[in-house]
Design a protein around this nucleic acid. Structure first.
Length: 639
RNA sequence: GGUUGUGUAGCUCAAUUGGAUAGAGCAUCUGACUACGAAUCAGAAGGUUUAAGGUUCGACUCCUUACACGACCA
């Protein structure tokens, strides 16, 4: 490993040399391991027991056995009475009756024989079931038996590598990288919440023509400038020279064209580009002077990245560097030739034919023996498997590389790699601006560091305006502004389905009302205020509510929302979608605020009810914190 | 040209994977702070789900065709 990215680079999962792939393959013939049975959340358990009761009802009333799979139970829509709805259309054929008739008959039987069902109503083909308050109290008890952060067992993968961020070292991070970083971090945390072992990996693209461009420009115009002397973060300094290269390079092309050279030839023959190409060759040949400059500039960049990563709150367990892996793929190419799944053309270049897979012929190694992108990807995939023996390897990469990732997976399959099926491309859409696409050449790229500064400043201004932070120290205030600014930004980027292209509106991103991160952070700080007040009033925290028999609808609705959290985590993990968690956090916060406005807590005269509501409020706070933790967003005690 | 993704209120996003009258937020309008925190809550208005067919008890969701925008591959 040629470099270290500061503290973030602590590779606690560094692989022991003994863990060879061959050994692991023997130990692990199948990628999917047998699992403990998935954990069902209280709501799912209730649904299952309702299904069993419905089967019994069908048996008793119609004398027909219904498979559980044909019973579709869903949450009742808000405008109707009830909590669960059975769609009876699907049963008309099996039971030989009309949908209303079925609903009525099943409902009557349940109300008479199933104590959990306190009432029902039928509308067309929908049977709405009302659940007894005692059952909701039991559900809440069951939920509370586990802490909000308890792992949710699923039948998903248990040993996962999530590769994300993977920046180029010639310029600082921008808005697009932020979506990538937030997604990668969050998906890793969500998978951890299912009990999986997760390794966050970063494959740093530290070699190639792009960094040579920065280096050439630095040699020409740098005059020994350093991040310290320039007062610039290292990544921004490298970016400055990359821009300078492009500027002078364009100028050279223009001059050549003025002399009558065609654009195509000018691009290739411009002196600066020739120098950059030469430098790349010198680098590959190990030229000590070039390597020294490369180390120096990359070192600056890593310091800059390290600061940004720290600032935005993402981390990594393992760094890979292309300078260390780019040659590895050639072995895989040899392997493919030996196995006869790759072929050589007359000029010596190596290809794989993927037409049977609906793809194309793909170049794997150039005629001169130099590698292309996919060559190193083949090598890195193998290396990652040697290091971690994963049963799932997730690549967080923008959807412009969909084809590339398909080719990678298909090629690994051709090679007969057991881990080929474990590869998963988490493909996310690009981020657009109101002005259109981000284009680095047109200078419309939103810089990550600058953006973070802006959102934090906006959070600060709004917080000062509210003026509710009396008693916080200056340091605590700075922390709060940062928490709120980043909360707004992360939530904004994560609430959208990853696979969809999205629009970044700077004004909306710093908004803190409605469907925003700060709204949910505010809701959490409300639960914290309730807790403080309870302590202030000397309410016994262990006080129970055993005598409560009747609930307000706001109570039971909040319980129902709270109790589906484990199912939400499982779904988010299955779909690799932080948006599912974000949506849930918003729903829970809204539910809580409604509860807060509708029913009294401290003014409640029935002390058992008051105790229940305190417990509901506390649990809401824990789950908002847990859910936001999965998104990489912190929540404040007051704001 | 080939492959592929997307298209939902003025704008940004949802829709339990085929279920009820398609839901939220922003913006607009109206109400609620000497209530436990108004970064909140309650309400109004806003839709031929790009278009046309098809599949069935039922379609934003599945199929076909067209259109628009994007990405990738020559």
């Amino acid at each position: 490993m040629p470099h270290h990215l500061g503290q973030a680079a602590s590779c606690k999962l560094a692989s022991p040399a003994a863990s060879s792939y061959a050994l692991r393959a023997k130990l692990r013939p199948a990628l999917r391991l047998p699992r403990t049975s998935p954990y069902l959340c209280p709501v799912q358990q209730l649904e299952n027991s309702l299904k069993t009761a419905l089967q019994a009802a069908a048996q008793a009333v119609f004398g027909v056995e219904i498979p559980a799979a044909s019973l579709t139970l869903q949450p009742t829509r808000k405008e109707f009475a009830g909590s669960f709805t059975l769609v009876t259309f699907a049963l008309t054929k099996v039971l030989g009756k009309g949908p209303e008739q079925i609903g009525q008959a099943l409902g009557e039987w349940l109300q008479a024989n199933e104590p959990r069902v306190s009432g029902f109503n039928v509308l067309k083909g929908f049977l709405n079931l009302e659940i007894a308050d005692a059952e909701w109290l039991a559900v809440f008890e069951q939920l509370r038996a586990q802490p909000a952060t308890a792992p949710v067992a699923t039948d998903g993968p248990q040993n996962v590598v999530v590769e994300y961020s993977s920046p180029n070292t010639n310029k600082p991070l921008h808005l697009g990288h932020l979506r990538n970083n937030f997604l990668g971090y969050s998906v890793a945390e969500i998978l951890k919440a299912t009990g999986a072992t997760v390794t966050k990996a970063n494959l740093v693209n530290d070699r190639g023509i792009h960094i040579c461009k920065s280096m050439i420009a630095y040699q020409h115009f740098g005059q020994g400038e350093t991040p310290q002397s320039a007062g610039l973060k290292g990544d921004h300094l490298a970016g400055k020279y990359y821009v300078l290269f492009e500027k002078h390079y364009r100028e050279e092309i223009r001059q050549l064209e003025a002399e009558g050279v065609t654009n195509e030839v000018a691009k290739k023959s411009a002196p600066l580009m020739a120098e950059a190409q030469q430098m790349l060759q010198a680098w590959e040949a190990g030229d000590p002077e070039v390597k020294a400059l490369w180390s120096l500039m990359n070192g600056w960049v890593y310091e800059g990245f390290d600061a940004t990563y720290k600032n935005i709150g993402v981390d990594f367990d393992k760094f890979y560097y292309e300078s260390g892996t780019y040659l590895l793929g050639k072995e895989r190419v040899e392997e493919g030739l030996e196995k006869g799944v790759f072929f050589k053309k007359e000029n010596g270049s190596v290809w794989v034919d993927l037409q049977a897979e609906g793809l194309d012929e793909k170049l794997l190694l150039r005629a001169d023996g130099t590698s292309v992108y996919i060559t190193q990807d083949l090598g890195t995939a193998e290396l990652k498997y040697q290091d971690f023996g994963y049963d799932s390897s997730i690549y967080v990469i923008a959807d412009e590389q969909n084809y590339h990732m398909q080719v990678l997976q298909a090629t690994l399959k051709k090679l007969g790699k057991p881990y080929a099926d474990a590869i998963h491309h988490l493909s996310y859409g690009m981020v657009d601006l109101p002005s259109g696409k981000m284009k680095s050449r047109e200078g419309t790229v939103v810089d990550a560091d600058e953006l973070v500064r802006d959102v934090v400043a906006a959070a600060k201004a709004a917080t000062l305006e509210k003026g509710k932070t009396e008693g916080l120290s200056d340091a605590e205030l700075e922390e709060l502004y940062h928490m709120l600014g980043l909360g707004a930004l992360k939530y904004y980027l994560l609430k959208v389905d990853p696979k969809k292209r999205m629009l970044f509106n700077p004004e909306e991103s710093v908004n803190l009302e409605g469907d925003t991160g700060p709204f949910i952070q505010y809701s959490h700080s409300r639960t914290a205020a309730v807790r403080r007040k309870a302590v202030e009033l000397g309410v016994d925290e262990t006080a129970d509510w055993a005598s409560v028999t009747e609930l307000h609808s706001a109570d039971s609705e909040l319980i129902q929302e709270l109790a589906r959290y484990p199912a939400v985590v499982a779904e988010a993990a299955k779909n690799l979608s932080p948006a599912v968690v974000a949506q849930y956090a918003y729903d829970l916060a809204r539910n809580y605020n409604r509860f807060y406005a509708k029913v009294p807590i401290f003014a409640e005269t029935d002390l058992a009810k008051r105790n229940l509501r305190l417990a509901l409020s506390a649990r809401t706070g824990e789950q908002l914190k847990a859910a936001f933790g999965l998104l990489g967003i912190q929540v404040p005690e007051r704001m």
